[in-house]
Design a protein around this nucleic acid. Sequence first.
DNA 1: GAGTGTGAACGTCTTCACAGCA
DNA 2: TGCTGTGAAGACGTTCACACTC
Lengths: 218, 218
Amino acid sequence: MPVPVPEATVARLPLYLRALHALAESGRGTVSSEALAAAAGVNSAKVRKDLSHLGSYGTRGVGYEVEELVFEISRELGLTQGWSVVLVGVGNLGHALAGYGGFAGRGFRIAALLDADPARVGELVGDQRVQHVDQLAEVVRATGVTIGVIATPAQAAQQVCDALVDAGVTSILNFAPVVLSVPDGVDLRKVDLAVELQILSFHQHRRTALRESREVLA
Amino acid sequence: MPVPVPEATVARLPLYLRALHALAESGRGTVSSEALAAAAGVNSAKVRKDLSHLGSYGTRGVGYEVEELVFEISRELGLTQGWSVVLVGVGNLGHALAGYGGFAGRGFRIAALLDADPARVGELVGDQRVQHVDQLAEVVRATGVTIGVIATPAQAAQQVCDALVDAGVTSILNFAPVVLSVPDGVDLRKVDLAVELQILSFHQHRRTALRESREVLA
DNA sequence: GAGTGTGAACGTCTTCACAGCA
DNA sequence: TGCTGTGAAGACGTTCACACTC
């Protein structure tokens, strides 16, 4: 593999995967780049370029086999090996994540739920019982997880992050609204629930500002 | 304003804003691009370029005034005008969003909470009582909201989206894992909670694959 | 004919490196 | 001297357009 898959392509593969799962459920055996593009909300040239980075899985004049593509994308993303995940912070967001179909349905198994609040310890969420965050190192060792998800309040996040790193977790997904720091060799990604709303605000703001300035001119 | 603010810059402004709020709380009066970059998790050249698109708010040899920058970024993002938001879907994720500091703390007021489940109607979340989604048109008219947030299950999302558009909402933020379609003139953005986890999986996968192939060679 | 795979053109974003100002 | 603001260079990503294949 001399040419690595571009990061922008990697970011879209989950999109294609979701669209393909939907297509497979609706009984579609094959898709064109055009149809897949529509289902994923991008344009067809992008789909073809992206998929070409994984190899040649399409048939000219026909399209791509849905099942085959699901497998190849899953493999590329490493979803076929069934990751175990430890989720820290079982508030509303933690509950939402624990019950999220996009996790369990995509090769991610929640191996443990941790929280700092003693009142929540022992609670049953899905098929897992909430454990105290003090057990973190032990839990990570026992379950062998390599991926950690942080859904705690902002103040607790760095401490939890450090604990995860110390315990040997090398991939961390952070939902807390703070910038975390990790040592080299640990992959940290973040989701900020408010960022997109603020971007939306920017566009709405500019649109109404433009409309008003046009009305002034009229 | 002949040169529009680049989209990539807009996407980072919320980051800077969060970092600046934290700096302001800790009593910092002024920041260098270097310090702000560290707090926001980017590099300093980017910070300077980004901020230069808003105007010249820095002082050479000194840096930027924290309070001033907070105001200018907020203004650019349109956060100073206090948007009202309607949130549809009050499950775990909806609860998490309703209680999220990044919304209320940034000029977004939740004007209404809607849900399709009669069992949830009437429930008090924060200072709002959950109303039935059938009231959507009426609620939008009464409150004059222009931003809608969808936190429903995937199956319900397009229907809710259509209802929002019909009611006159022109900016929609979608948390449901489906691609929604909206008419021209409506700005649609999405957050997929599972995408980042899958990207993380890709990197973790590639890392372990590389390590293994190196071990084979050794 | 239909639709993939891909070089080439184009556009956008990032980074560098330094002139210029406080 | 310290740090901003910015042209210029380079990396990266997108889109076009068409040769090629089924």
